[in-house]
Design a protein around this nucleic acid. Sequence first.
DNA 1: TCAATATTTCAATAACCATTGAAATAAAAG
DNA 2: CTTTTATTTCAATGGTTATTGAAATATTGA
Lengths: 120, 120
Amino acid sequence: MTDTDSAVTVLSSLAQAHRLDAFRCLVAAEPDGLAAGELARQLGIAPAALSFHLTHLGHAGLVTSSRQGRSIIYRANFAAMRDLLGYLTQDCCGGRPEICGDLLNPDTPQDCETPAKSSC
Amino acid sequence: MTDTDSAVTVLSSLAQAHRLDAFRCLVAAEPDGLAAGELARQLGIAPAALSFHLTHLGHAGLVTSSRQGRSIIYRANFAAMRDLLGYLTQDCCGGRPEICGDLLNPDTPQDCETPAKSSC
DNA sequence: TCAATATTTCAATAACCATTGAAATAAAAG
DNA sequence: CTTTTATTTCAATGGTTATTGAAATATTGA
């Protein structure tokens, strides 16, 4: 992602509770991915609604899909999220440490253990 | 920010071209801030439309305002952006380096020089 | 081939979002 | 105290978004 338009596309994909939850579930399900139906069950939403959201996420490049038998397996695309974070820190915040916070400070001890608190 | 709901609030604030541009302008204008009218001029949108967007950004905590004479000065709130980045890297990505990318890798040389390419 | 399973597409609907121009509010200057 | 400048609020409008249930598509196994 380089331009503002695609940043908006990705941001609006994540700016919806069901989609944000779905993406988080798919991150947690890596590297296996998750079938659409299983994801719908975990999120507690109708299959048709989830399909709508997954299309949205796919269009933003945040997820990929592949058929496996009669299921369709969705997987989180890490690169898209990485690009978004890159945009926000570099192009939006101008790389200012006082905005980006500890993320851009090499001296910061990074705590990479975070228990997911959602349904996944 | 800690919960999904406020993450969605902040994300949807940034998920609109005029608001994303406005926030970027305000980041560039730090620490002085920018008057609403001046910002509207830079973005090329009607004052009433900008007011709508600034209210949205304010509700998400991304900007603050203070009257100065007959102008109202808006400023970017760095903490809100920092919180969003923290949420995305920790709660959404689970702090996985392969998602968060270089941001969470202490060995990465950070390039904090980025020329803004928008109207600001 | 037929039935069952998994998912998507479609049309309809209600809710929400962004923009506009006009009117209202607030402060400063004459 | 009236006018000018800066901004917001309001109502109306058109556009987009999310959800639902029903129908369509694709795959598997009997």
